[in-house]
Amino acid sequence: MLRTASLALFLFAFWLLLSGHYTPWLVGAGLVISILLALAGRRLGVADDEGHPIGRLLAGFVYWPWLAREIVKSSLSVTRIILDPKLPISPQLFHTRVSARTAVGVATYANSITLTPGTITVGVDREQGTFLVHALTKASAEDVEAGDMDRRVRRFEGRAA
C-alpha cells in the first residue's frame, strides 16, 4: 500500500512538473488520475518492487554519478579509437559472471554495460547468472571482467540475498 501511495505521489509530481498550469481544475484532475493510475498499476501487478523500485533511489544517487564518470571515460577511449587512423580494435565476445540477483539489479547491470561505449550486453542468462558481452577492445573486455561495476551494482541492489 505504501508503495502504491509513493507511485501515486511520483506520478502526481511528474504531472505537476510537466504541465506547468496550476489551476485548481488541472491540478485536481492530475491528482485524481495519478491515484487511479497507481491503483490500476497495483491491480495489474506492475506497482511492485520491480516496477517501482523506490527503495533503490538513494543507492542510485551513489551509483549513477560513478556510472556517468565511467561513461565519459569509455566514450573518450572509444572516440580515440575511432579517430585513430589504424583503427586499433580487437572485438571480443565472452561470458561474464553476474552477482546481482534481483530483477532490478540484473537489469541495471545489463543496461550499465550497454550504456558504457565499448561494451554491449548481447545475452542475459539468469539461470547461470551470466551475461554474454561484446566488447570493442581487449582492454574494455578486461574492464568488465575485473568486476568493479558488478560489485557496485551489487551494492546498489542492497540486500544480501
Binding site: 572516440t79 575511432i82 579517430l83 572485438p91 558504457t116 561505449p117 565499448g118 554491449i120 548481447v122 561484446h134
Partner: peptide, 26 residues
C-alpha cells in the same frame, strides 16, 4: 560526429554499435 565517423569506419554490426553509442550517451 565522432560516433557517425565511427559508424562508417567500423567493420561489422557490433563494432558499429559501439561507435554509435558514443553519440548516444556522451
Amino acid at each position: 560526429i565522432a560516433g557517425a565517423i565511427g559508424m562508417n569506419r567500423m567493420p561489422d554490426l557490433f563494432t558499429r554499435m559501439h561507435a554509435a553509442s558514443v553519440g548516444d550517451t556522451l
